[in-house]
């Protein structure tokens, strides 16, 4: 990789323990700006843990210890002056199971604005505009424009997951983290969400954890292969799938273990 690449996320000797169990070992990666990076590896290899470090949502579990650094746009997110709400405003996350909030579609989209706006009342017209723009960006506007008052938890799974992406957009995040965003969806919906990811790439830096090799190949520009908490290989996706350098990567990709 050339030196003039801009990195949005860089980690330096990142170690993480859940109690006594070390889930990440000396992880040092540079994730480039504006592309889709895939995190792959067998179950329990730490890829979701790594992803959840980037917005520090890992810390919800309590007994987590971390050492090392994570720089996002050059700022160490473990510094004392980092505010978690601000961090998470800049870094959106999409979860494995679609988790829209049990409020209306409209309120789901503007939830971030309401939480982050210092003003008591945001203008209705302003919010309407944001809702339309965000839903258009995820190709939901035509389907949902008459259902904005419906409860979001009643939508189809695909729509729910797209809505979960849409509600990040009003906050204008730099990074979108996706934790196996399609594992709860059928193949049609998976294709639709993947297409959406491809249209979002470029505007946002996207990191996606996936179990699905084919998906990693289809959507990601670069791939990181992890095993037992360590980074094994990080290259361009086509290189990883055609000429893996590490024999363990090759074994995994070819399905010899998983």
């Amino acid at each position: 990789m050339s030196n003039d690449t801009k990195y949005t996320i860089t980690t330096d000797k990142l170690n993480l323990w859940y109690g006594d169990f070390q889930a990440l070992i000396n992880v040092t990666v540079n994730i480039a700006d504006g592309i889709i990076t895939g995190l792959i590896g067998p179950s329990g290899c730490g890829k979701t843990t790594l992803l959840r470090c980037f917005n520090r949502v890992n810390e919800r579990y309590g007994n987590v210890t971390t050492t090392g650094e994570i720089l996002i746009n050059g700022k160490n997110i473990y510094d004392d002056d980092v505010s978690l709400p601000e961090l998470r405003k800049a870094i959106g996350m999409v979860f494995q199971r679609p988790n829209p909030l049990p409020i209306s579609v409209y309120e789901n989209v503007v939830f971030g604005l309401r939480v982050h706006s210092r003003r008591k009342n945001i203008k209705k017209s302003e919010m309407d505009e944001v809702v339309e723009k965000s839903l258009r960006e995820v190709f939901l506007w035509d389907d949902l424009k008459d259902k904005l008052d419906k409860k979001a938890t009643g939508l189809q799974l695909e729509q729910q997951q797209k809505l979960c992406i849409a509600r990040l957009l009003p906050l204008k995040p730099d990074i979108i983290l996706m934790d196996e965003p399609c594992s709860a969806l059928d193949s049609e919906s998976t294709r639709a969400v993947e297409e959406l990811m491809l249209t979002l790439a470029g505007k946002y830096t996207i990191v996606i954890v996936t179990h699905n090799m084919a998906q990693a190949r289809r959507v990601s520009d670069e791939c990181i292969f992890m095993l037992l908490g360590e980074i094994m290989e990080h290259t361009r996706t086509e290189e990883m799938f055609l000429t893996p350098k590490n024999p363990k990567t090759a074994d995994y990709i070819e399905g010899r273990y998983g």
Binding site: N55, V57, P85, G92, N99, L101, V115, C164, L171
Partner: peptide
């Protein structure tokens, strides 16, 4: 998952309780 969703969107603990949990 509701709590996680709200926190990942950057809401504080109280905002999460007031806007998501109580409703």
């Amino acid at each position: 998952s509701y709590r996680e969703a709200a926190e990942a969107l950057g809401s504080t603990r109280w905002q999460m309780i007031y806007r998501v949990l109580l409703p």
